[in-house]
Every structure is written in structure tokens, then in C-alpha cells.
Design a binder for these strands. Structure first.
Length: 164
DNA sequence: GCCAACGTTGGC
DNA sequence: GCCAACGTTGGC
């Protein structure tokens, strides 16, 4: 099952299968990470350097499923919620899902990500909403989900908007 | 600051 | 297992 299909399925499956089942899925998947910039900003992510940071604190099962589906080398957008409301940079998964020590219940986990590069021009939520080809983006459809899948098509469109 | 969306909790 | 109450997220 494709990541996107798995995500849209109700109820969502516990595991997201990739590769052999969904042949058209390329080896690398894309994601979107939301952060309120006054809590954790892109600048801070950049300063964390190649070591990256834990993407911890996720306490939502649908978001957890996204974290579990992430593979080493997957890339993602870094989105500033609340203030900014724009995609500002690109990050990469440098460690796959493992337990989140800040979760006493032991049910949730986290991945490590590092900053790759900033977008030439940040892509605002308003821009995304105004682009018909992006109307199905999780950012619009599942606005409260903090970790989201991004399709290859959406990834390319946002990148093209960032250079416009 | 307001409020809609939505996940979680807890009483029954 | 239902659902009302409550808390949180995040756009506006």
C-alpha cells in the first residue's frame, strides 16, 4: 500500500508497507514536519548541524504512524506553524523510529532529522491553498496533524514554487 | 483572542 | 461502548 493511500485509509492501518507492494513508490518518501518557530525554529534546526535533533514529543497515533514509516535518507519539509505559516527548509531523516524517552508510557517514539538546506523562497500556506494542484495536501486536509506525508508530486510542486 | 476541528478522558 | 466534557492545535 502506498504511503498516501495508507494515510487516507480509515481506519489507518497499524503499519505502512512500502516498496514491493507499491511498485511505483520510489525508494525515497517525503514528509512535512510542523513546528512553532518560537518553540523550535528552522534556525535552531540549522544550528543543530549534521548531528540533527530528535523529533520528539509526538503524542498522536496518526503522527506516530508517519514517524514509523520514515526511512533513513527520506527528505521532508520544515514548516513554521502559527507564526510564519510557511515551509522554510528541507530536512533529512538521519535515524529511524526509536523510543521517545520523554514518553512515560513507552508507546510513542521519534526520529532524528537534520537540516539540509533552506528553501530559496519560503512557500506560504496561502500560496499552497491558492494552488489547485495542492488541494489534497495533508497540510490542508489534515491541518492539525503535526507530521505528515507529502507525495512526490506535491514535493515537486512546492519545490518549484520555492524557486519562483 | 477567538473558535473550529479533533483527539482524549472519564462517567455511566 | 457511548458520548459529553475538556484540552490542544493552529488558522484567522
Amino acid at each position: 500500500m502506498c504511503v498516501r493511500e495508507a494515510f487516507l485509509a480509515k481506519p489507518a492501518p497499524a503499519r505502512v508497507e512500502r516498496g514491493s507492494i507499491c511498485l511505483e513508490t520510489p525508494p525515497m518518501a517525503h514528509w512535512l514536519y510542523k513546528s512553532e518557530p518560537f518553540k523550535w525554529s528552522w534556525d535552531q534546526q540549522v544550528k543543530a548541524g549534521a548531528k540533527g535533533t530528535h523529533w520528539d514529543g509526538v503524542r498522536n497515533h496518526l503522527a506516530k504512524q508517519q514517524l514509523q514509516a520514515m526511512k533513513l535518507g527520506d527528505t521532508g519539509f520544515f514548516y513554521h506553524s502559527n507564526e510564519g505559516k510557511e515551509i522554510v527548509g528541507i530536512v533529512e531523516v538521519i535515524r529511524e523510529f526509536y523510543p521517545d524517552p520523554s514518553d512515560a508510557t513507552g508507546k510513542f517514539g521519534m526520529v532524528d532529522i537534520k537540516a539540509v538546506k533552506p528553501l530559496k523562497n519560503p512557500v506560504t500556506l496561502a500560496t499552497i491553498k491558492a494552488e489547485p494542484r495542492l488541494e489534497n495536501m495533508a497540510l490542508i486536509k489534515f491541518s492539525r496533524l503535526s507530521v505528515q506525508p507529502v507525495t512526490d508530486e506535491e514535493w515537486d510542486i512546492v519545490l518549484s514554487l520555492a524557486q519562483g
